[in-house]
Every structure is written in structure tokens, then in C-alpha cells.
Amino acid sequence: MEQHIAITVRGREGLDALMDPRFGRARWYLLVAGSEVEVLDNPAFDAQHGAGIAAAALMGEKGVTDVIAGHFGPKAERGLAGQGVRMWNAPEGLTAREAVERLARGELAAQGTPR
């Protein structure tokens, strides 16, 4: 099955955007599927509670198979794992492009175990 990758980003400029270390409270996600790239708004980035769960639901709706972020909170992790989405931890300071390349080379650490 083709990988649908979501990367947490701080800007709308595409693959050159810097990653946001946070998953649930990232302002945008960059969706990468093959050569297609799309910026996705995170409507729950400033939710009072449960931003991670709302973001996990969004990943499920968009058919994302792999998410790259700096860190996933416990509720987001439960939500993503429940939907079978793989979670990858990236170090601080990468661009979305670098994160995707590192994932392809198997250089990112996996978080949790999908169901």
C-alpha cells in the first residue's frame, strides 16, 4: 500500500517548511503521497482539550499511514495507534523534505505500536 505521509510543519511553504515538534498543536500538516504535496490546516491546534485526539482523527480521515512529528502525546498516540497509523519521531530543526528523506532511508525512530 502506498505511503501517505503527514509531517507537522510551521509554515505553508511546502517541503521546505520547518517541522513543528508538536503533533496535536501543530498549525499545519504537510501531506505527501508520492509526488503529490498538500498543506492541511489543523483546525484543533488551539483546542482547549483533546487537540491530539482531534488531530489523530484528522489523520484517519485523510488516509494517512505515517505521521512524522517531534513528539506524540499519550492521547494522540492512543488515537493514532488505534487507527493503525505509524508514528515517527524526528529530531528538532528538520525541514519536511529532510524528514521524508530520513523516513525513506529508515533513519527515524518509531513511536508506539500500531494496532
Binding site: G50, G79, G82
Partner: peptide, 22 residues
């Protein structure tokens, strides 16, 4: 999931994840 305004419910394909703390 769409009913809950507190993000405490996550609908899976054939199951529901509930977040009691929310």
C-alpha cells in the same frame, strides 16, 4: 466522534476509542 465537542471520542473502523479524562 462528530457529536462530542470535547474530543473525547475517536471512531475507528468498527470500534470506538474513549478518552475518559476529556
Amino acid at each position: 466522534q462528530s457529536t462530542c465537542v470535547y474530543n473525547a471520542v475517536l471512531a475507528l473502523r468498527d470500534d470506538i476509542l474513549l478518552f475518559d479524562e476529556l
